[in-house]
Structure formats: C-alpha cells, structure tokens
C-alpha cells in the first residue's frame, strides 16, 4: 500500500442500497449499475472521507474476513482505484467531507 494515507468518500451523485449484504450502486451520470461483494461493501460503507483506507482494511476488512493484511491492503487499493474510475468513490491524500449519511 502507498506510503501516503488514502482517504475515500462516497460520491454523492450515486445511488446505493444494501441487498442481502451486498451493495447495489448506480451512477446516474451514465446509468452504470454495479453490485459490490461483501468485502467491497464493507469498504464502501466505511468510506466516510475521514478514515484512512489502511485503517478501514485493518479494522473492518481483516476483522470480518480471514484475510492477510498485506494482501487485503493491495486488493483494497485496487478496488478503490476501480470504483474511483467509475465515479463511485472519491479519493484523496487529505481527509474529505463525508458525502453521505447512509
């Protein structure tokens, strides 16, 4: 994982709701529709703009799923990058305003 902390926040432009533990996400800009698996859902729900991604992985992902920290960090960074490209998450090296309340 990169040395600088990565902060992640949900984009307020999207629609999202959990269905049986998996998050449905739709970006109204292009009507792309995604479902996030359980691990991605945990990261999405914890993306409050204030908690560094490393902490989310350590405190949420690794505690809920039996995964190796280094491996989980690498996977999380890749996931966050992909979701950012689709306009679902916003990333920064500085804390971000929390985009949503839910």
């Amino acid at each position: 994982m990169s040395e600088n902390p990565i902060y992640v926040a949900r984009n307020s432009a999207i629609a999202a709701r959990a269905l049986a533990g998996e998050m449905m996400v739709m970006n109204s800009a292009d009507s792309t529709f995604f479902t996030l698996n359980e691990v991605a859902t945990v990261i999405f729900q914890a993306a409050d703009g204030r908690t560094p991604l490393r902490e989310i992985v350590r405190d949420r992902v690794c505690k809920q799923f039996e995964v190796d920290l280094a491996e989980a960090e690498a996977d999380a960074e890749q996931l966050v990058s992909e979701l950012s490209q689709h306009g679902i998450l916003i990333t920064s090296n500085q804390p971000l305003p929390s985009e949503t309340s839910r």
Binding site: S12, I14, A15, A16, R17, M26, S28, T100, S101, R102
Partner: peptide, 8 residues
C-alpha cells in the same frame, strides 16, 4: 430522498 441514496 437523494441524501438517503435512493435512485430517483
């Protein structure tokens, strides 16, 4: 509704 993240 949008703050609650509905697709409207």
């Amino acid at each position: 509704a949008r703050r609650l993240m509905f697709n409207v």
